[in-house]
Amino acid sequence: MGKWKIPGLAGRPRFTSRATVLVLVLCSLVAILAYPTRQFIAQRSEIAAQQAKAEHARQQVEELRRERARWQDPEYVKAQARERLHYALPGETPFVSVDPSPSASARPSSADAAPGTGTRPKAVKPWYVSFWESVDLADAGQPRTELPASH
């Protein structure tokens, strides 16, 4: 078996000049349209993100409106004052329950214990003693000046 030759195709190049120009035009179009397409896709995703943020903000506004409407009700205000501020109506005896077993954070730490013993907590000074000591310390830092008599 020999090689079959088709007449007229033996000397023709694989790509003609027309095909080369067509490929160059197509590649140029792809290169020209790539950036705007990428920008379009990025802008669409940004629009979707902004719409989601706007919807979230709308939901927050609606929640705040409902909250404001609740605070307009005098019974809700009374209930909140009783719960949060421990208010009581005249004639009622308010009670606050205290946990009989203190939590770990309420127990005195080892830094509060007396030196040398790890069991006894230091005596806590009243607030006015601490305040007066801080005034004395501030006074000791500056020299005393006598005020001239005003008479």
Rank of each mutant, 00 (worst) to 15 (best):
residue 15 F to C: 03
residue 49 A to M: 01
residue 151 H to Q: 09
residue 111 A to T: 11
residue 10 A to G: 13
residue 32 I to Q: 07
residue 106 A to N: 07
residue 94 P to S: 04
residue 145 T to W: 13
residue 52 A to D: 08
residue 93 T to C: 01
residue 91 G to A: 04
residue 140 A to S: 15
residue 31 A to Y: 06
residue 118 G to K: 06
residue 64 L to H: 06
residue 149 A to N: 05
residue 29 L to E: 00
residue 130 S to E: 14
residue 7 P to T: 06
residue 54 A to L: 14
residue 59 Q to G: 09
residue 3 K to S: 13
residue 105 S to C: 01
residue 4 W to I: 04
residue 66 R to N: 15
residue 41 I to A: 03
residue 98 V to Y: 13
residue 24 L to V: 03
residue 100 P to L: 10
residue 128 Y to G: 01
residue 51 Q to W: 00
residue 81 A to K: 04
residue 85 L to P: 00
residue 10 A to N: 12
residue 16 T to W: 10
residue 23 V to T: 06
residue 107 R to H: 12
residue 53 K to H: 02
residue 20 T to M: 09
residue 73 D to Y: 07
residue 91 G to C: 07
residue 137 L to A: 10
residue 61 V to K: 03
residue 26 L to F: 11
residue 71 W to R: 05
residue 2 G to L: 08
residue 136 D to H: 12
residue 148 P to H: 01
residue 97 S to I: 02
residue 86 H to A: 00
residue 42 A to L: 14
residue 114 A to N: 15
residue 16 T to P: 00
residue 19 A to S: 11
residue 57 A to L: 12
residue 93 T to V: 09
residue 126 P to D: 09
residue 6 I to V: 13
residue 1 M to V: 04
residue 121 P to K: 11
residue 59 Q to P: 02
residue 13 P to L: 12
residue 69 A to D: 15
residue 18 R to N: 09
residue 3 K to D: 13
residue 147 L to D: 10
residue 36 P to K: 05
residue 90 P to G: 01
residue 107 R to K: 13
residue 30 V to E: 03
residue 93 T to H: 14
residue 142 Q to P: 02
residue 17 S to I: 12
residue 143 P to A: 07
residue 26 L to Y: 05
residue 87 Y to G: 00
residue 97 S to H: 11
residue 28 S to N: 13
residue 125 K to P: 02
residue 129 V to G: 12
residue 104 A to I: 07
residue 23 V to A: 06
residue 119 T to N: 05
residue 128 Y to T: 03
residue 19 A to F: 05
residue 95 F to G: 04
residue 56 H to C: 05
residue 145 T to H: 12
residue 33 L to Q: 14
residue 26 L to C: 14
residue 69 A to G: 08
residue 65 R to E: 15
residue 51 Q to E: 14
residue 132 W to K: 03
residue 23 V to I: 11
residue 61 V to H: 02
residue 108 P to A: 03
residue 80 Q to Y: 02
residue 147 L to T: 15
residue 110 S to N: 11
residue 46 E to R: 09
residue 96 V to W: 11
residue 47 I to P: 00
residue 6 I to E: 12
residue 123 A to C: 03
residue 34 A to M: 13
